[in-house]
Design a binder for these strands. Structure first.
Ligand SMILES: [Mn+2]
Ligand SMILES: [Mn+2]
Ligand SMILES: [Zn+2]
Ligand SMILES: [Zn+2]
Lengths: 144, 144
DNA sequence: AACCAGTTGCGAACGATTTGCAAGTACGTC
DNA sequence: GACGTACTTGCAAATCGTTCGCAACTGGTT
């Protein structure tokens, strides 16, 4: 939908309008998260941030990620037995497959599943506020 | 599939065969979990166990639940922002809807979704080892 | 009845995340 | 461009669900 640079810019604009104070730390983290496509966790984001801002604290990373999440520009995912992972929240909704061997996270989407989920909820008298679907997978072995 | 009594008995048999030692604490917890249909967490199970065995420790509850999980007679679920919840693992696979207002957990199953999940994984070159699907829902408001 | 590896209760440790607080800073106002 | 203040930061300590070390205990076997 957008390259990392405009993605970060778009998110910065969204933030400025929401009245949140744009500190150096927040700008940096927003930029780093926007450019990431690998669902990093807080410690990894702190590591990346430290390259450009040596003194930044892990607390600030956590606080900033929570703030960015509240303002809807970042999404948090809590996969099984793992630390929370983050990604920019600009794209369309999608779910995740986690490769158990490599740890790689693959994104996917199925309109059909989403529709069925809504129907099943409706049948039970509910509307869906949020959902989570994760497939823990292994590469299919092509060898004999 | 089975009433709580035979359910507990069936699970006890499965355990005995697996060589695990059947202590009073394990028998009690196995019985309590088998009779539960509300996905209790460790603290709640400890509370229920204490009624019949005042001295039982929370550590033992946690250790026992892990043991029962390893032996395949109990299943653990980690819903969003919540402690781990447990249920007997004798029935067929199902997924969960969590009522955000009441906390109630509703079970559901869709062959069609399960099939689509496998197809999507296969398309990406993967086979599913495990998956998790949770719908966080609210009762549909019938009022104007 | 004796044996002993597995299990328990207790308290301490763990680890990811959050929080209190004093010092620092963004940003609207003059 | 400096000022004032409410918001933010870095640090260290707290939190909290869960796990772990260890000495005492016990299930199941001989
Ligand atoms: Mn993603
Ligand atoms: Mn269930
Ligand atoms: Zn989805
Ligand atoms: Zn399922």
């Amino acid at each position: 939908m957008s390259n990392p640079a405009e993605r970060a810019e778009k998110l910065t604009d969204a933030l400025r309008e929401s009245g949140i104070r744009l500190t150096r730390q927040r700008r940096l983290l927003l930029d780093i998260v926007s450019r990431s496509d690998d669902h990093p966790d807080a410690v990894e984001l702190h590591r990346r941030a430290t390259d450009q801002m040596p003194g930044i604290s892990l607390s600030t990373v956590y606080r900033t990620l929570s703030a960015l999440e509240e303002h809807g520009v970042v999404q948090r995912h809590q996969f099984q037995n793992d630390t929370a992972r983050f990604e920019p929240a600009d794209g369309a909704h999608h779910d995740h497959m986690i490769d158990l061997d490599s740890g790689e996270v693959v994104e996917f989407h199925s309109d059909q599943i989403e529709r069925l989920q809504s129907e099943l909820a409706a049948e039970a008298g509910y509307e869906i506020v949020a959902h989570r679907m994760e497939l823990y997978v292994r590469k299919i072995d092509k060898e004999g």
